[in-house]
Write a protein that binds this DNA or RNA. Structure first.
Lengths: 238, 238
DNA sequence: CCATTAGTGTGACTATTGTCACAGGCAGAC
DNA sequence: GTCTGCCTGTGACAATAGTCACACTAATGG
């Protein structure tokens, strides 16, 4: 099979290598087969739009490869990034469950493969497999917590410095390895970070320079190293 | 039975007058009986704390009477109101489903009656009644949308005027009667509104005065009348 | 019925940060 | 190679709105 956009194609959920790691894939065999039957896999190029804000919810996308940016736009067109969904995560779920329009724009950050499941068969599937409905509730909780985290960035921290410090600590703890030196790969641009924490690109750039100057962090290419976690946490208390 | 805090007590979900209107109460008979068996009703005085941020999720509260304020606090103690849950709504659900600690503080805005359901029996109940799990997923979607709305207030609107205008329009459309003149009862103080839209109490007061001066709104006691919806919407575009 | 508290109204000052403007670096396209 | 576009870095300036301070009014409670 040809492989567009250089992706490794996953033929079926039944043989998906992520089955154990994530979400829907970790289901009993009959449910998995049924899910496979109502899913349709597709690949999308970078910057492809899966759906837009206000559009009627047609169904959910389960991401197999790549990352998807979920954002909302203000009247003047300035976008705000709600969350970045990674492989294994689900997008469009709240809209599909509730029947309300999608709340955000979903855009592929890189070439992606995703399974699309139309709303009606999906809801029917959930009615038949009650344990999967509970799994869906868990996923919705996770999405809620991610959005709640976004509220914290936007509302709870007084200064832009606090927001960025918290963001960097969150990134590091999400990918935490050992307890000593925190490091993570940061694939987001200053502009994107600004859109997540709700500030301007220039402010992020300035704060990065500031944090480096104070030896709180180091950046080597796309690798972020938190040199002084304690001091970075102190920024939150001022 | 004595009725503390002047509340009308609802003895059982089976005879709850809100059954048809809301949520869990609208369930088939066997499920409802089972739910009733694992629920324990209680009343709380004004300002009672149902749970706090970071506390292990013990279970969910279904509000029968009164309103509950869900808020998060910053390091310096400034609270941010996430949502106001009304009678028929559920609080503590995301934490209970996911097993993560509660994300917010839940405080009674007035004397309330609520049913508490412990986590383990609740999850067991959901496993047995798959259709209720789907209902829970819908409720989680609603909670998600409410939180998403909060993100919009905090992140998408540039000026405090835009935030307040959007807030007032949301309030009015939530309680919309006819299409002509929009009015709603606003039981929140300027301080609380400020904590919802992420600004200061003084700014809210000033903006209210400003909107009144421009004849966009009128306030008679706790009744808010939107005189000029179009102009209020224009505020959003500037 | 008075006292105490919560809520509202308003002025003055300040500062954080958004905006604009521009420059240099780096990567991919051709 | 060099061109073009995206990302980062930095200065200058303005302004929105936060903070503090205080006055006034409406409730609530003994």
């Amino acid at each position: 099979m040809k492989s567009p956009y250089g992706l490794q194609i996953i033929e079926s959920c039944l043989i998906c290598p992520m089955r154990k790691r994530q979400l829907f894939c970790d289901l009993p065999r009959p449910a998995l087969e049924r899910l496979d039957a109502i899913s349709s896999s597709a690949t999308y190029p970078k910057a492809a739009i899966l759906f837009v804000e206000g559009q009627e919810a047609r169904g959910v996308f389960v991401i197999c490869h790549g990352r998807v940016k979920l954002s909302a736009s203000s009247a003047d067109g300035k976008p705000l990034i709600l969350r970045i969904a990674e492989a294994g995560e689900v997008v469009g779920l709240p809209g599909t469950i509730s029947g309300k329009p999608y709340g955000a724009i979903a855009e592929a950050l890189e070439p992606i493969q995703a399974n699309f499941i139309r709303r009606e068969p999906f809801l029917q599937f959930l009615r038949e497999y009650g344990e999967v409905a509970l799994r869906v509730a868990e996923i919705l909780s996770d999405i809620y917590y991610a959005t709640y985290q976004e509220v914290r960035y936007l509302g709870l921290y007084r200064s832009a410095a606090e927001k960025l410090a918290q963001f960097l600590l969150d990134q590091a703890s999400a990918h935490e390895k050992n307890g000593r030196e925190f490091r993570t790969t940061l694939t987001l641009t200053h502009h994107e970070i600004a859109q997540i924490i709700g500030t301007s690109r220039e402010t992020v750039t300035r704060l990065f320079a500031d944090f480096k100057r104070k030896h709180l962090i180091e950046v080597h290419g796309s690798v972020l190293v938190i040199k002084n976690k304690a001091s970075l946490e102190e920024v939150l208390e001022t």
